[in-house]
Simulated assay, not measured.
Amino acid sequence: MATISDIAEQANISIATVSRILNYDASLSVTEATKRKVFETAEALNYTKYKTKKHQKRKSSKRTKAAEKNIALFQWRQGDEEFDDLYYMSIRIGAEKAAQQLGYNLIKGDTESDALKSVVGSICIGKFDEQTIKKIVKLSDNAVFIGTNFPLQNFDTINSDYEQAAELAIEHLIQLGHQKIAFIGAEEHDNLHGYRPYRTPVVNTYRDIMQYYQLFDEHYFFVDTNARLSVSLGETLTKQALASWGDELPTAILAANDAMAIGVMNELAAQQIKVPETISVVGINDLSFARYLNPPLTTVKTFTEEMGEVSVWRYYKNELKTRQLLNGLF
């Protein structure tokens, strides 16, 4: 496991600056390029998939077998937008590492470009709306989407089990004795498919479990139904929640993801409410920077890098099958 010192040394940035960036310190004035360098370095240093000798050996043998091919990479969150939710950055890094190992080139996807005629397929990271999905599939029906919840339409999808993640988080808090468990989150309905009032697994699982245990209290439920999950939104919703709660504070808060959890913790700290002494905070995703927060964030693991890897391995396995068929014919 990499330390803040390792990240600072690799990125050539001071330990203090790295720490403040990883904690989303709003008072710190640094360029977006510096932020990106720190977060990407943290992800890379904690990326362990190909670090053993066994994997390195397999890497060299497979690169000689895999022809150089292009895969279009479509990103829902691009550029500085990735800082809002590093979940997608982590998936992208996983895809890039696997592509490098297997001899593929990831090229920027563009639904208006004719250049995609030469690609073997598309990897699409994020919650694309239905119109964009149709455009991408029309360009290349050999597509895999990571993180979309739209029904299958001639494409594969890769998703984490967020119902289970939310269940693990809530059951953990209940076992610790918590009953006043608040929820702070958000949904972007334009990018979600479904007919329930709330459309994301985490939100619905929280409601279902808390109602099952007869612990659900609308007073402790804060969800923005048309907003991006981000640190700043976590701060805003927590500020609103604290004003509403007054002296009736919950003993724990489940945030929709790690970015929101950081916003929650930042606002609690700003109002001098101690974590976890007064309120425990739990996130979901276990992104690499969670362990560097002060205090470290309790979070449920989702395998983001592996999701990116699987999307690339899909094309490699299809390539192997095609070779086997051709060898059988000729």
Rank of each mutant, 00 (worst) to 15 (best):
I4K: 10
I7H: 08
A11Y: 05
I21H: 07
I21Y: 11
N23F: 02
Y24W: 02
L28N: 04
S29N: 11
T34K: 05
K35W: 13
E43G: 01
E43M: 03
A44C: 12
L45W: 12
Y47C: 00
Y47A: 03
K51T: 00
K57C: 01
K59M: 00
K62H: 09
T64K: 15
N70R: 11
A72L: 00
F74T: 07
Q75E: 13
Q75I: 12
E82N: 14
F83A: 10
D84M: 05
D85P: 09
Y87A: 05
I91F: 03
G94D: 00
E96L: 04
L106C: 06
K108G: 04
D110P: 02
V119D: 01
V120Q: 15
G121F: 07
G126R: 09
G126T: 11
I136A: 04
S140E: 10
D141A: 13
A143T: 15
V144H: 05
N149I: 12
F150K: 02
Q153T: 14
D156L: 14
D156M: 08
I158N: 12
N159P: 02
I170A: 12
E171N: 10
H172P: 01
G177A: 02
G177S: 06
H178I: 10
A182H: 08
L192T: 10
R196S: 08
V202R: 15
M210Y: 05
Q214T: 12
D217K: 15
D217C: 13
E218W: 02
F222W: 09
A227R: 15
V231I: 15
T236N: 09
T236L: 13
W245C: 05
W245P: 01
G246A: 01
G246N: 06
D247V: 01
D247Y: 14
E248T: 08
I253D: 14
N257W: 13
M260V: 10
G263D: 06
M265F: 10
A269W: 06
P276C: 01
T278K: 14
D286W: 00
A290V: 07
V300A: 09
T302G: 06
F303S: 05
T304R: 10
G308H: 04
S311T: 07
S311C: 04
Y315G: 02
Y315P: 03
K321I: 15
T322S: 06
Q324I: 10
L329K: 15
